[in-house]
């Protein structure tokens, strides 16, 4: 049996917020166990205040745990070496408003010691990937929330990280942006990156995550591979292609014979996201315009 060291490992992680008198005010994280394998997309789910962001901040070394064990890439999270292999997108993109998109990425690249041609190459590719190449000298402070999220995502990937931590990555993004982020996440996972994704948008998590943990009140309430968690053993679904009316009738009669009752039958529905994407894609083809973003969640060259 191959033993592979987890990328993120927590055992009995605790974080208690205290008041001035050191009295516990809120038990934000209460005994969380996590273990992320290399190359998987892991979802951290939970309502607001369930401890998702706190857990992430502990993993990033911003907050200090009050109990339990934490290891990121095999080392304590406050180790500076760990940080050079981590990419992080916070729940809101806290950017320097007086910098433009390129300057922002240049600054963060410099913190990783990236220089010269390599740095500029990566910046070009990332700006292209998130669809901000056209923003020129426009300051980040003037960006819309969606644009700020995109630049936030770009800075999280500038160092070609092994572990990407995304806190509410799709908040503030339009469906196109959301789709694009999800595609990027999937593509990164295929490239062997480990991704920890926190969100309360269940559809996003369902689409991209391999495993999830659901938190409530700082505790793990459910955890496991997403397929297993969503599986309902006694509830089956038959998927059919395009059936002519007489075949459909034949099938229903046969099923009635087996089940004793005549089952309901409905045409398959697209979800709203698919419909929206189709409509926009159609409109684009007709007008020949683009929103500046790539249509596919294609990765930047250096990430491929």
């Amino acid at each position: 049996m191959m033993s592979e060291e987890p990328i993120v490992y927590t055992q009995g992680l605790q974080k208690i917020f205290k008041d001035f008198w050191r009295r516990p005010r809120a038990r934000a994280v209460d005994g969380i166990d996590l273990s992320l394998k290399p190359g998987e997309v892991y979802g951290l789910l939970g309502p607001n205040g369930s401890g998702k962001s706190t857990t992430i901040k502990v993993l990033l070394g911003l907050l200090h745990p009050d109990g339990g064990e934490v290891r990121v890439l095999g080392r304590p999270p406050r180790d500076v070496q760990v940080k050079s292999r981590v990419g992080y997108l916070p729940e809101e993109s806290y950017l320097y408003p007086y910098l433009d998109a390129r300057e922002t990425l240049r600054f963060y690249a410099a913190l990783f010691g990236l220089k010269g041609e390599l740095r500029e190459q990566r910046i070009d590719q990332l700006l292209d990937m998130v669809g901000l190449a056209h923003t020129g000298r426009r300051r980040v402070g003037e960006f819309s929330k969606g644009m700020a999220r995109r630049i936030g995502l770009a800075q999280a990937l500038i160092n070609d990280p092994d572990l990407v931590i995304l806190d509410e990555p799709t908040s503030g993004l339009d469906p196109l942006g959301t789709r694009q982020v999800k595609d990027i996440v999937s593509a990164l996972a295929k490239r062997g990156k480990t991704i920890l994704l926190s969100s309360h948008l269940l559809a996003d998590v369902e689409d991209v995550c391999d495993r999830v943990t659901i938190l409530y009140g700082g505790k793990v309430r459910a955890s496991g591979p997403i397929r297993e968690l969503l599986q309902m053993a006694n509830n089956l679904q038959i998927k059919l292609g395009d059936l002519p009316d007489e075949k459909r009738e034949e099938l229903l009669t046969a099923l009635e014979g087996v089940l004793g009752t005549r089952p309901d039958i409905e045409p398959t529905r697209r979800d709203l996201e698919t419909l929206f994407l189709e409509v926009v894609a159609q409109a684009r083809r007709e007008t020949g315009e683009g929103s500046g973003t790539r249509e596919e969640g294609e990765l930047a060259g250096f990430l491929q």
């Binding site: 940080k83 050079s84 916070p90």
Partner: peptide
């Protein structure tokens, strides 16, 4: 206050 340090301190900067 503006939480910009959240981003900076997650980079390899002591």
């Amino acid at each position: 206050t503006n939480r910009r340090l959240h981003m900076v301190l997650t980079k390899p900067v002591s």
